[in-house]
Amino acid sequence: MHTSGSRIVRVGTSLAVPVRRRALVQGLAVVAALVAVGIATLTLGGLGIAPERLPAALIDIPGGSEGFVLKRLRGPRFVVAVATGAALGISGALFQTVTRNPLGSPDVIGLTAGAGAGAAAASLLLPGAVSVPAGAMLGAAGATVVVFVSTGRGFSSPSRLIIAGIGVSAMAVAFTQYVVMLQSRDQAAVLHAYLTGSLSARSWQNAAVIGGALAVLLPAAIALGRRLHLIEMGDELADALGGKAEQTRVWSIVVAIALSAAAVSVAGPIAFVSLTAPQITKRLSRTPGANVVLSALTGAFILAAADLCAQQVPVVEDLPVGVLTAGIGGLYLGYLLVREWKKGTV
């Protein structure tokens, strides 16, 4: 696995991490872009903090309107955007590697659709008693359980998983559309907006939920990502090398589901980040495998940048960020495909 351009970084005697130069440069570039988006998020617009005052404001949080913007308005919103984007990116990377399908993502196994149906059910059956995000969370969990049961073999068979996911999604989407049609126009519009996925008015509590999920699951995802790399050589060889193919696949999917459920609970079902982030990462870094860290960074960047647009760009202001992720992510993926087509690769 010692390919050209990679170095082994050793910490003590027990930890040795291969670092590819290209991947490192790419990672640093995405981090830089992410910081730039963060600065823009905090400084732009009528309420923005003056750029020259930003460093001081970050160290010693001022009172008044600047403190309000930093502590209540844009600070938590940016943190939630980054963490949610990272969670979605990882989740997509794990799914796509396990299922060996570029369409493999939590959206495909019905989790997002289940969240939508849960939200719809909450707003229709028990308005007030169950909050809409809680309904979404329950729906996501419910859909996952149905998929798990109906494959007959849990999460261990990728192709069964996808087909079962399609079935469950179809039911969930149909139910959601039916509820949207039944409700009064105002209620339907509120539900419709939630189902798009939005980051407006997020609090530090939301940030804590998604941040906590990431803190627990990111190390697990990185470890699994390495083992997934072994599996790509074939199950028997992976088992011989200690890769434990079956077990790795099941746990990868469990982690992926937990991450995207956490993302749904804070931001609603934001489409397309988990689908695009790993694809973009793979095309830029030109490495096979899950690329967990890079996909996380790319996902964070996509979502934060899209949310910046949702706050500042005149035409799309007031639209939920889910509309923009689909638009921006989709166009970029299209651009990459066309570029590859011109170069004649793939």
């Binding site: 397309f272 689908l275 509309v323 923009l324 689909a326 638009g327 993926l333 299209g334």
Partner: peptide
């Protein structure tokens, strides 16, 4: 993949 791209942009 191309279908996913077009669907995403149009659904947005």
């Amino acid at each position: 993949l191309a279908g996913a791209v077009v669907s995403a942009v149009l659904s947005a």
